[in-house]
């Protein structure tokens, strides 16, 4: 599956929600889309392109904005597909993919607690790796590493 095929099949459904499809090493391509049209894109990728398995969800803090990315896998094509969208840091939220791919549940919990991207309509958005009440999002670039004393006070929660 080539990037041109993917763009041809997604463009009628997404319209201006589809920004670009470009080659990406190790995958069938990189699909960049507007975060408002996320759910439509997930359904199209799963039902029309037959990427039935969501392998990974993550987020990156680029300081001025945050990037949420998804890696889907197709058993038929034996290829990965890289999906990514940019959200502003001031309002970092995107629709949850867990209604389309249930495996997104825990990945989105991790992305939320590490990079502070809220996933709307997530069934169970709570801490995964950190204790409940943990006050930080450690993978943000504004997070300072050397403050164990403050961490202790805020994360003890006993």
């Amino acid at each position: 599956m080539q990037p041109d095929d993917i763009a041809r099949q997604l463009a009628p459904k997404l319209g201006d929600g589809l920004l670009s499809v470009e080659p990406f090493p190790g995958t069938a391509g990189r699909v960049r889309f507007r975060s408002e049209r996320a759910l439509e894109l997930f359904r199209a990728v799963r039902d029309d392109l037959h990427f039935g398995h969501l392998s990974m969800v993550g987020a990156i803090d680029w300081v001025d904005h945050r990037e949420v990315f998804y890696v889907a896998w197709s058993d038929a094509a034996t290829q990965y597909l890289f999906l990514s969208t940019d959200v502003p840091a001031s309002a970092a939220h995107v629709e949850s993919a867990s209604s389309v791919w249930p495996s997104a549940n825990w990945h989105e919990r991790e992305a939320w607690e590490m990079v502070d991207v809220t996933f709307d309509n997530h069934p169970d958005l709570r801490h995964l790796l950190m204790p409940d009440g943990y006050a930080f999002h450690p993978l943000l670039r504004s997070f300072k590493l050397h403050e164990p004393e403050e961490l202790e006070v805020k994360s003890r929660h006993v």
């Binding site: 790796l129 950190m130 450690p138 997070f143 590493l145 050397h146 164990p148 961490l151 202790e152």
Partner: peptide, 13 residues
Amino acid sequence: GGGPFRTAYSVVP
């Protein structure tokens, strides 16, 4: 004392 992870965000020092 936390070992090599002493300054990590998730480890009790």
